[in-house]
């Protein structure tokens, strides 16, 4: 016979145990999926990347690190990295600036702010496939963009930059990637606006009141109060944006096909991976591309950590 206190202690222990069992049961399915499909995948990918692996018949030859050597020696892969990095360096700041500007605007007490917020987010609702096809149409030689600038008499201005009246923007090696950047800045700035809006609203009123008492102008307040306080927001948006940017695939694949035409202008790292798997028939090589992609993204995250300081405590 145990003493009452001991019985209470053991019932707490029992309670603890049943709590843990309940917890494991609740998280079991997602954790198994994550461990197999995410964590396990990395190791499996590492293994596959050491082989020549036929898409139909499986492993053919053990190649060691040869796939990685081939990869680094392929000018098209280097072009893919270059394109992805260029895209990231231009698209991320551009979209962040637009997103932040929109957020600041709809955070004002202005008439119709709900409408503006809904409108600015609107382009983000469509699928990448639909919107890319729509975009290809708009920037095609006879598309809306060219006809409107023609009708507005802007062609001489474009001529200065060497752009003819019927330019195929997304089919030209010099403007294809920039066309995709503008497309995605247009569709994604609304999402970034919402991210920033959440951050802006977490800034208390007091700081603004203090700034107002100090006689700061609107710009000064924004520059010296809002912007620094948004630091965690920047970190979050930038992280999400960079990871997304380095994974650019849908728009490039739809506009440029599996080869990233024209002349590899739309060949991105992920498109290269897809191409390696389903155009060169070598899963081993493709797995090596995936590992390389992971290394690049991981590196980019570390760089950002340096730029924006420690990650927020989530």
């Amino acid at each position: 016979m145990a003493a009452p206190t001991a019985r209470a202690r053991s019932s707490i222990r029992l309670e603890r145990r049943s709590e843990a069992i309940a917890a494991y049961a609740l998280i079991a399915v997602p954790m198994i999926l994550f461990l197999v499909l995410n964590i396990g995948s990395i190791f499996y990918a590492l293994f596959i990347s050491l082989w020549k692996w036929n898409v139909r018949s499986g492993p053919v030859d053990f190649k060691g690190l040869e796939n990685y050597g081939t990869l680094l020696g392929d000018p098209i892969f280097l072009r893919a990295i270059q394109n992805s990095v260029y895209y990231t360096l231009v698209w991320v700041p551009l979209t962040m600036v637009i997103g932040l500007s929109l957020a600041v605007i709809v955070n004002q007490k202005i008439r119709g702010r709900t409408f503006f917020r809904a409108a600015f987010y609107f382009p983000a609702i469509a699928s990448s496939a639909a919107i890319t096809i729509l975009w290809i149409f708009i920037v095609s030689p006879d598309g809306l963009f060219n006809t409107v600038r023609g009708a507005m008499g802007l062609n001489p201005l474009f001529e200065l930059f060497g752009f003819g009246p019927n330019k195929n923007w997304i089919g030209d090696q010099d403007t294809a990637l920039n066309s995709v950047i503008i497309l995605n800045a247009w569709t994604t700035s609304g999402t970034f606006m919402l991210f920033y809006l959440a951050s802006l609203q977490s800034i208390g009123n007091q700081v603004y009141e203090a700034a107002a008492i100090d006689g700061a102008t609107a710009w000064q307040t924004f520059r010296h109060v809002t912007l620094p306080l948004l630091r965690p927001g920047h970190y979050f948006v930038a992280t999400v944006a960079v990871i997304g940017a380095l994974q650019l695939f849908d728009q490039a694949a739809i506009a440029g096909g599996i080869a990233g035409d024209p002349n590899n202008a739309l060949m991105t790292m992920v498109l290269y991976l897809y191409n390696a798997a389903f155009s060169r028939f070598d899963f081993g090589y493709a797995a090596a591309v995936g590992i390389a992609l992971f290394v690049v993204i991981f590196g980019a995250t570390l760089v950002q950590r340096r730029l924006f300081g420690q990650a927020p405590s989530w």
């Binding site: 997602p30 954790m31 994550f34 461990l35 499909l37 995410n38 964590i39 396990g40 995948s41 990395i42 499996y44 990918a45 596959i48 990871i243 380095l246 994974q247 695939f249 992920v270 991976l273 897809y274 798997a277 899963f283 493709a286 797995a287 995936g290 590992i291 992609l293 992971f294 993204i297 991981f298 995250t301 989530w314």
Partner: peptide, 18 residues
Amino acid sequence: IVLATLMIPDQLRLIPVY
């Protein structure tokens, strides 16, 4: 691990998952 899945690029798992 849950948070890590947000950081691991989806495409890395293309070949193994496939």
